[in-house]
Design a binder for these strands. Structure first.
Length: 272
DNA sequence: AGTGCGACCCGAACGC
DNA sequence: TGCGTTCGGGTCGCAC
């Protein structure tokens, strides 16, 4: 489940592996994952190079000379760099071959990830990118920003923190962790979250994401970034997937409930 | 406008 | 053991 820290880890790894290599060939094995015109997808990439890799929220933005290739890993998308001669694996859906005989392979068991090749000037009007809210660590992400965004929200804070148009990049794992850090009950109505609690959300999201990036993200299920870099942040998780285990602060068993259809983990005693 | 929910997928976990 | 069923997870689009 790649969230912002995982995507950042993938970005950093790929930058070392594929920048400025010339694209020789592109094969798409599962066409629905390409949101832009499938007929021109390969043709537009061949002969070009990735000159930079940026990120916005959970979106990877591969910069080419004249285009951007947007890539969202959703839950289980991964990139691997492999020699050209290695046989295709079952869940490899896009293979980009470079002229040095290496290949960049997009692997996704659930086929949920998406790619979108756009003209550079269209980035400013591409909805998925434009709608992204402020990222953890952004100096504009303040308690007053959050208070204003939460003001009319009747939904549980857990659900609202998953809304990428408010804070960009938090997924289920880190929302559970941030709420534990801020000692907020995930079911609390967003409009009732206090200024002090907003401060803790700002502080907690920044701290947790920074540490997770430092540790290479979180490994849940089989998640590994490109080159098989395995995230170590799962060792730091305090509540996520810890149902029944004692809370690290007070010892009460961690609860697991569904909020908005998503599994939520929290300590009933610490998060009132 | 805000909210809720199904669709998209398929391996893993679960139930019998 | 082996089969069938359910679940999960981010985002979009549609219905209310």
């Amino acid at each position: 489940m790649p969230e912002i820290a995982e995507v950042e880890t993938v970005r950093n790894t790929l930058k070392k592996q594929i920048l400025n290599k010339k694209i020789q060939d592109v094969t798409v094995f599962y066409q629905p994952m390409i949101e832009s015109d499938i007929n021109t997808f390969a043709r537009d990439l061949i002969g070009k190079s990735f000159i930079d890799i940026k990120r916005r929220g959970k979106w990877l933005i591969f910069e080419l000379e004249d285009k951007y290739l947007l890539s969202h890993l959703r839950m289980e998308g991964k990139f691997f760099l492999k020699p050209k001669e290695e046989p295709k694996e079952k869940h490899e859906h896009v293979i980009i071959t470079f002229t040095d005989n290496t290949t960049l392979r997009y692997h996704d068991t659930r086929k949920f990830g998406r790619m979108n090749l756009i003209n550079k000037e269209d980035l400013a009007t591409t909805a998925s990118i434009v709608k992204q809210g402020l990222e953890p660590g952004d100096k504009n992400l303040t308690n007053s920003y959050l208070l204003a965004k939460f003001k009319n929200k009747k939904l549980p804070i857990k659900t609202v923190l998953l809304d990428q148009t408010i804070i960009s990049g938090l997924g289920n794992i880190y929302v559970n962790e941030v709420l534990f850090y801020a000692k907020i009950n995930p079911l609390k109505e967003a409009s009732k979250v206090t200024q002090k609690e907003c401060e803790l959300i700002v502080e907690g999201s920044d701290k947790i994401i920074k540490e997770a990036i430092k540790m290479g993200g979180t490994t849940i299920k089989s998640y590994t970034s490109s080159l098989g870099v395995t995230g170590l942040f799962q060792q730091k998780l305090k509540v996520h997937k810890k149902a029944g285990e004692p809370c690290s602060v007070c010892g009460s068993p961690i609860k697991n409930i569904k909020i908005g259809g998503r599994s939520s983990y929290y300590c009933e005693n610490c998060q009132k």
